[in-house]
Design a protein around this nucleic acid. Structure first.
Lengths: 117, 117
DNA sequence: TGAGAATATTCCTTGACACGAATATGCTAA
DNA sequence: TTAGCATATTCGTGTCAAGGAATATTCTCA
């Protein structure tokens, strides 16, 4: 999950993923479209590959890269747990917690240790 | 979008967001739960705030942080455009992807070579 | 074979950023 | 006012990652 986010957080890699959304592409094609240099594209593809975001298929001297759905799917699954944030009835809980100033929001009571200099 | 991804890609910030999923919390509470030092938590909250992921409300000496839904919602919206990757009509591609594991430096099969550029 | 195409890798440098330590700021109550 | 708490900021440092340049690798075909 973190690996997926890290890979996507780089603008050029994000663009590569956007390109691959429309289907598999060879490296040279992405080089042309993104205006990046070939080594950089290869390096970014390496990172995406390590993160499991793309797969590669060999075709003569070319490598055809493809998006792998799993990581993005996992990301969407994670986001679904946040859905109630923008699907109503969370504001009330928000306000409620805001009122209990000294009280703890959930299940904690302790004071944390004091770090001395 | 990139800003959101960048903010979430850092493990500790990711944890902070996960904490805030259950509701607003003061800084000290997160310090306790995450086992991080207070300055680091404040710094991470600063980054999250700059990215628009959290909002802060002042309560005496405390700052109560809250998740802002918009960026996550936007992220989910972006992911929806990739949904067809794992929903039907890409089955053939999916099956194909099953065959080719990433980073196989040696073995490759003969395929017709076509060069056009 | 060798040439040339397509892609990957290495080395180097630079900038961003996360952490630790120390300190500053802001707030409240005695 | 001062003390004390809660939080933010600054500064210095080490690490890591991205880009550039050059080169290596792998493949096909004449």
């Amino acid at each position: 999950m973190i690996a997926t986010l890290r890979a996507l957080a780089e603008p050029n890699r994000f663009q590569i993923v956007e390109l691959l959304r429309d289907g598999p592409r060879p490296v040279g094609d992405m080089v042309d479209r993104l205006g990046l240099r070939q080594p950089q594209v290869s390096k970014h593809l390496r990172v995406l590959s390590d993160a499991g975001l793309v797969a590669v298929r060999v075709d003569a001297q070319r490598r055809i890269y493809t998006l792998k759905p799993a990581p993005l799917q996992e990301l969407e699954l994670w986001l679904e747990r946040y859905r109630r944030l923008w699907e109503g009835n969370f504001q009330r809980l928000d306000a409620l917690l805001g009122e209990m100033k000294t009280a703890e929001p959930k299940t904690q009571k302790k004071k944390r240790a004091r770090t001395k200099r």
